[in-house]
Design a protein around this nucleic acid. Sequence first.
DNA 1: CTGTTAGCGCATTCAG
DNA 2: CTGAATGCGCTAACAG
Lengths: 350, 350
Amino acid sequence: MISNKNNNISSRSMGRVTLADVAEKAGVSPITASRALKNPQQVSEKLRTKIYDAVNELGYIPNHAARSLASSETKIISVIFPSLSNAVFPDVLDGIHDTLAPAGYRILLANTHYETDQEEILVRTLLEQNPDGIIVTGIDQNENTRKLLLGSKTPVVQIMELTDFPIDMNVGFSHFQASYDLVRHLQNAGYKKIGFIGARMDPRSQRRMEGYKHAMQEIGISNNDYVLTNQSHTSFKLGAKLFNQLFTQFSDLEAICFSNDDLAAGAMFECSRKGIRVPEDISIAGFNDLDFAEELTPSLTTVSIPLYEMGKKAAEYLLHKIVNRTNPDSLQYDVSYKVVERKSTYTDFS
Amino acid sequence: MISNKNNNISSRSMGRVTLADVAEKAGVSPITASRALKNPQQVSEKLRTKIYDAVNELGYIPNHAARSLASSETKIISVIFPSLSNAVFPDVLDGIHDTLAPAGYRILLANTHYETDQEEILVRTLLEQNPDGIIVTGIDQNENTRKLLLGSKTPVVQIMELTDFPIDMNVGFSHFQASYDLVRHLQNAGYKKIGFIGARMDPRSQRRMEGYKHAMQEIGISNNDYVLTNQSHTSFKLGAKLFNQLFTQFSDLEAICFSNDDLAAGAMFECSRKGIRVPEDISIAGFNDLDFAEELTPSLTTVSIPLYEMGKKAAEYLLHKIVNRTNPDSLQYDVSYKVVERKSTYTDFS
DNA sequence: CTGTTAGCGCATTCAG
DNA sequence: CTGAATGCGCTAACAG
């Protein structure tokens, strides 16, 4: 008699319907039932319908843990972000989700709150799930984390920025170059005294600042006093505060680049409150091109990033490697960026 | 000889280090090794250190699937949101994450994109993981989804709003009442001709609109022409567009309530572009009190919701039920809300 | 196309 | 405090 022990429900079994129950009801062996669900074409139509009927009647729901244990495939992708309140990540996550969900993969999400130690702990925890793939933010994992990831044999995509030494695959763009380009653009438009305001100063903000500094050095106006950074979490309020701090001290500044749109918008709100005219009195530029950027008055000059596409591409890389067990054509993908000039920096210097 | 078959690595095994390997190396039985990891105080210190050493030397990472299968505990909480781009959800998710992560639980995230059919599919998929708990958004699950959830015996929390017929537990607030209160507040301040603009019109936007309508009926100014809704996804741009549509037609409107802050801000941006004065020419109110609300010029009157706390509370309810196997003191928790009056509706009618 | 056998890695009994 | 036996539910491998 084919049967599991559900007859005399043990305390261990949840009393749930198992594949064996389905098989029994359909009068087939468990493995046939299994195949009918995973590779329907391998099972005759007659048995298939019988099995499907049994599934529906019994309300069978597969047990994922058992499936994973037997097949060593979990259909889980782990995603590690430094933050969710930062509006860029939900967009990236959407791209990831929309690509993975249709392929039957689920997302295990974790949040480091921008703490590198947390990252190591989270990677360790997430690896216990044997995810079929992992997406991590940035390229600055510590040595232990890298080792863990490498040793896990799990496909990994580092996203948001590019590195010459990826753990595995890599999808992003150069924050340094993007920021550099933005500043050069302003310089070409005639700006000379340009400041930089950044918060949180995670690795990517850091590199955006470096891009700014590099551009300023190139035209020989490298003044560290024009740079103001802060370790606090980014916010509109903080943008306002830092703007006041810098602009009060250096009212001769012609433009200020902010490490992100939130800070920039916060500054613009402050200008609006104080009657400071943008761009006449001070020009302002952001980074990310969040959706409010072009709606502000004046509209905000910034750098546009294809966030959703970045998530999508990362997920595609992962799927490719999981399904084909081979690397995609290239291990690295540059999603690029675009400097978007708007009215917040439109000044006629002639 | 205690050993698993890793000596002659089969194609099924991943060749990974197992608990048996650790046990062998430490010279103990697998179960002792298991206990050393889960309930250290049950194992003598001598053996414990031996086992820990073995774990570190071998780089052992527990296999979650095996653990789940044996213990029928997954340490996974499934979370279903209708959207991530909507800024309210990342905040809620943060509250959930920050409560669950320290307790050793992981979050499996899914996104319905506001489609109810998707929800059923996702619930079905997520149930395969045997999550220890589930958090779903809203109270409008379809009959199948309810049945699935109920049948799963898994603790469930419905969040964002309140219902008299919860599936299990329920954490949220009354959108109807919150919106009603906001409108009453405006009415008490002297406003009579108040409009309503909503987008997407998911169940919660719907109920906010009902709250508005109810308040308007009470003072006998119920004019459906003053209501403009749209099924598109919410955005700043759409706020501007809908505002134009309504205000062009009814320039006698004194105030407009928007179903969320994004739309309201979009309208304010449009006003700023067109030189329409807020609140002198038209007053504007939002909903949610996102962080930009008080930074706008004028600052935005809105309804403040404790999003992070809502997520936290939902997670706590879940943990309570999982750990104690009993219901929390109450199955329902009202996180409440607060009407926040700011300058965008400050008009002197005297 | 279908079935048999065996085992994935761990934790729950129940014994000592 | 430690261990032996057993099974969680499913699927890979090999037959037939």
